[in-house]
Design a protein around this nucleic acid. Structure first.
Length: 621
RNA sequence: GGCUCCGUAGCUCAGUUGUAUAGAGCAUCAGAUUCCGGUUCUGAGUGUCGAGGGUUAGAGUCCCUCCGGGGUCACCA
């Protein structure tokens, strides 16, 4: 970016001198030169063609001549002020309306030195810019407590965690939060089934994870309930009535009522069973590598919404209908009218989200609120945004609904009813098992490998495969998760990138000189060296130099996929370089040092990129 | 039906704020390697960018229409 700024000002100067054009910012279009052409940066000259009244190729040639005519001395206050000596642009070629500029090797060498020196390369350090960005709260996961996490939650959790990391790297103070839906009829169904059919089974006595245990009783409820409905229909009742009148359903509803009235017995059972579920969730989250800074429970927030609605009612934001229900009129915004309180005064989903927002804003000075929730709730968040704004929440209007599509499987859609739901725990376990199986031959040949380390590698690789495969896809799109493809060690996969990293670590270990100490002044800076960079080294350095702007772009677009594609391109570049040029066998000491430094920098950036995705990289594999 | 998202190679996906011959991986094919129809390596081919129109010097990218698919339009969460 700094390079582009310098070039930009030089181009402005050039077109002014050559054609008396006062170029605006948007006229200067610099882009990375395509690989089939020589050069690093390309200036598109079409915007000047008309005003210059010359052919595009001619304009390109003239600007190129001007830029290389006299050595360009970078500005004294520029970060590359250390750059001295040869001109910044070493050569150029003009192809039609494109001016391809070749940047001097010494510039790239200096860039590499700066990258290698910076321990937080690509990240905005918290002290620098945080105050300017503010506090961002990212809500994700948001499970119900009546069943374990499934594949859909996996996408949600991975996206949410990664987005939080990316925004942190962009200088936001991020609070990761989870709103647990711990109350409602669905919990009562599990509770009832457990009471009725459970024989006092607990996670300890059954050996099941708490969330799975509760999930099983939720399924059990549904089974028994359907049986009752079928029996009633066999006795001549119509379906709707049967569904309403089934004893289990009536009992569950009665239980919900007792819960809301604070019945000690129901509450005690509810707390006991929820604690089992939380223990199970914690295990899943830990394995997945995601975490939260603050957890909210709907049982605490759902009443808050009511008072907020009352306030809105007073200030005229909402209105009450004759039947006592409370509504918001959103027709001025092109939407419908929206219910906020039922006629019996109980709250709905929207009311709860308002209540949650209220508590959160009480706890944190939120500047930006991000909700990671599936795209089926787009309407809900559109409405929520308007309502929070009307109620005076500063983050309401600009809230981000980070909306993502469904995950499908090769053998069809995931449907809970058909029992084709993929459980998150099972999925992770099978990915790790697959990783272990696939990498067995490789890993077992590593010297001094312990069983424990082999397991650790399998865990990192299996989860890395899963995470990368899910995160690399544009979140908006529905995606197809193919486990076999995801764990391939070749191609656009997590393991490929992890493998590249591990291989670099191996090279660095084997290099007899210790890992370059970048702060050590004994490491050559190359600045005025006559060293000549080959094309693979150049493109690798150029790729490395793009990392900060990639991080910024990922933050602006809320897109982990941007990071994925960059990491893959970087790994590919490195493999291409590694394939063509030896590192350890290089005879020229300076070139060898350069290549080791380059490799170490690639490893560092890969590790940084992967950490933004929540993916661990093994030191060897 | 209204609103919204998506449609790029056989498959899974990239494609920055418009710009040069639209890219990867898998699969396929050819060659090399060898205990193997496996593994690894090298090389190759592949596209009416869903269709049509418009804006522009220039459109996969921006605008409009249509087609196809998903989602949503609850006193469910």
């Amino acid at each position: 970016m700094k390079l582009e700024e310098i070039l930009k000002s030089q181009v402005i100067e050039a077109v002014k001198a050559l054609y008396q054009i006062e170029a605006t910012d948007s006229m200067i279009q610099l882009q990375k030169t395509r690989p089939e052409f020589e050069g690093h940066i390309t200036l598109v000259v079409f915007p000047f063609v008309k005003l210059a009244r010359k052919a595009p190729a001619m304009v390109a040639q003239e600007i190129g001549d001007y830029l290389t005519g006299s050595p360009i001395h970078p500005f004294p206050d520029s970060p590359i002020h250390r750059f001295t000596g040869s001109p910044l642009i070493s050569s150029f070629n003009a192809v039609q309306g494109f001016l391809n500029l070749t940047i001097a090797d010494s510039y790239w060498l200096q860039v590499l030195g700066e990258i290698a020196d910076d321990p937080h390369y690509g990240m905005v350090s918290p002290s620098e810019e945080t105050h300017g960005r503010g506090l961002m709260m990212v809500e994700y996961s948001s499970p119900n407590t009546n069943k374990p996490l499934h594949l859909g939650h996996v996408r949600n959790n991975l996206l949410g965690y990664s987005i939080a990391k990316i925004q942190e790297a962009n200088g936001w103070q991020v609070v990761k939060t989870n709103i647990v839906n711990d109350r409602g009829i669905h919990i009562c169904k599990s509770m009832l089934a457990w009471l009725r059919f459970g024989n006092g089974e607990t996670p300890e006595t059954s050996g099941k994870k708490g969330d799975h245990l509760i999930g099983d009783y939720y399924v059990r409820f549904d089974k028994e309930y359907k049986k009752e409905v079928a029996d009633l229909m066999a006795q001549g009742m119509d379906e709707d009535t049967a569904k309403r009148e089934a004893p289990l359903m009536k009992e569950a509803q009665a239980m919900l009522l007792r819960w809301e009235q604070g019945d000690p017995e129901v509450r005690a059972l509810w707390e006991k069973m929820n604690s089992w579920v939380y223990a199970g969730f914690d295990e899943t989250y830990r394995m997945m590598g995601v975490s939260f800074d603050k957890i909210y429970y709907e049982s605490n927030t759902y009443l808050e919404g009511k008072s907020e609605v009352e306030k809105g009612l007073q200030s005229g934001v909402f209105y009450r209908r004759p039947d006592n229900s409370v509504w918001a009129d959103l027709t001025p915004d092109g939407l419908d009218e929206k219910l906020l309180l039922r006629q019996d005064g109980t709250s709905v989903y929207m009311t709860q989200d308002i209540g949650t927002a209220k508590l959160r804003f009480r706890d944190y000075p939120i500047d930006k609120m991000v909700y990671v929730v599936g795209n089926e709730q787009e309407y809900h968040f559109k409405v929520l945004s308007i309502l929070l704004d009307r109620l005076g929440f500063p983050f309401g209007k600009e809230l981000v609904h980070f909306s993502y599509g469904m995950v499908e499987l090769p053998n069809g859609k995931m449907k809970s009813r058909e029992g084709t739901v993929v459980d998150a725990d099972d999925l992770m376990a099978s990915m790790i098992a697959d990783a272990k199986e696939i990498s067995k031959d490789k890993v077992n040949t590593l010297p001094d490998i312990t069983e424990q380390e082999a397991d650790d590698i399998a865990r990192k690789v299996g989860l890395g495969a899963l995470k990368y495969f899910i995160l690399k896809v544009d979140p908006r799109k529905n995606m197809l998760f193919n486990p076999a493809e995801s764990i391939d060690f070749n191609g656009n996969t997590g393991p490929f990138i992890q493998y590249t990293y591990a291989r670099i670590q191996s090279v660095l270990r084997k290099s007899d000189s210790p890992l370059p100490r970048f702060t050590d002044s004994s490491i050559p800076r190359f600045t005025d060296s006559p060293i000549h960079l080959n094309s693979k080294e150049l493109s690798l350095i150029q790729r490395l130099s793009e990392f900060p702007s990639v991080v910024r772009q990922a933050g602006d677009e809320f897109s982990p996929a941007v990071i994925c594609n960059y990491a893959y391109a970087l790994a590919q570049d490195f493999n291409s370089f590694y394939h063509d040029y030896s590192i350890l066998n290089e005879e020229n000491g300076q070139v060898r040092a350069l290549r080791i430094m380059l490799s170490a920098s690639v490893a560092k950036v890969i590790a940084a990129a992967m950490s933004l995705l929540g993916i661990e990289v093994p030191e060897r594999m």
